[in-house]
């Protein structure tokens, strides 16, 4: 069965709404269908935050049970999928609580250095052309995953929902209870942070390639 994309239009929304109504009426088949539609999304988000298969599995089970047990507390004020995401994030943060660390990074550290006139002082290497050939190597994947793991939590969750899941800025704001400008600012910081981390790797790689 295909996984429902959280961003799909009308048709999916109607299916989703009717499943929710059935579930609220106590239909166990609707529970199974909802689980089938959402479990992969729940797992992927949780896995990208915890980077641990067992934790992501526990979270997925917890979330599915919560969906069922608390379905009557869902009032339809926000989209059902936003509610699912919020429950997923809460369950994931419970798992992460013990190892959660709050880092803050200033935006200046992520931008190039400028002279007094606001012009760039350092030479920036454009490694964007090199990424194609490197994309699918295990080393590159590990570097990317490690860079994402190092993102401060506030930026990481926005990045995962907006850039990885492909949700709209407005929807991410709804899920996280943030204003649109706040979502944009966190997303921008996340991208700058990741760019900086990946630059170290790709620049080193380009230097090595030139030596050959």
């Amino acid at each position: 069965m295909r996984t429902m994309s959280f961003t799909e239009p009308k048709e999916s929304k109607e299916i989703e709404e009717s499943l929710v109504r059935e579930l609220q009426a106590g239909n166990a088949d609707a529970f199974e269908k909802i689980a089938e539609l959402y479990q992969k999304k729940i797992y992927a988000l949780s896995f990208n935050l915890t980077r641990n298969t067992m934790d992501a599995q526990d979270v997925t089970q917890d979330v599915l049970l919560t969906l069922f047990r608390k379905i009557n507390t869902f009032q339809g004020k926000s989209a059902f999928s936003s509610w699912v995401y919020r429950i997923t994030l809460n369950a994931t943060y419970m798992k992460l609580r013990s190892r959660k660390k709050e880092l803050t990074v200033s935006i200046e550290e992520l931008l190039p250095s400028f002279n007094g006139g606001g012009f760039q002082q350092e030479k920036i290497q454009d490694w964007s052309e090199n990424t194609e050939s490197l994309m699918f190597t295990n080393e590159t994947r590990e570097i990317i995953q490690k860079a994402v793991d190092q993102l401060p939590e506030k930026e990481k969750v926005v990045f995962l929902l907006r850039d990885v899941e492909g949700l709209s800025t407005e929807k991410v704001g709804e899920i996280l209870d943030l204003t649109v400008p706040a979502v944009k600012s966190r997303l921008h910081r996340a991208r700058l942070f990741l760019r900086k981390k990946l630059s170290n790797f790709f620049e080193e790689y380009s230097r090595e390639e030139k030596k050959k």
Binding site: N48, I124, D126, W127, S128, T131, M135, T140, R141, I144, Q145, A147, V148, F159, L160, D163, V164, G166, R191, L192, L194, R195, L198, S199, F202
Partner: peptide
């Protein structure tokens, strides 16, 4: 270019 590339490759990996 590298900012745009970062978003793309992270998305494709994750």
């Amino acid at each position: 270019n590298t900012y745009k590339s970062t978003t793309r490759i992270c998305r494709e990996t994750l």
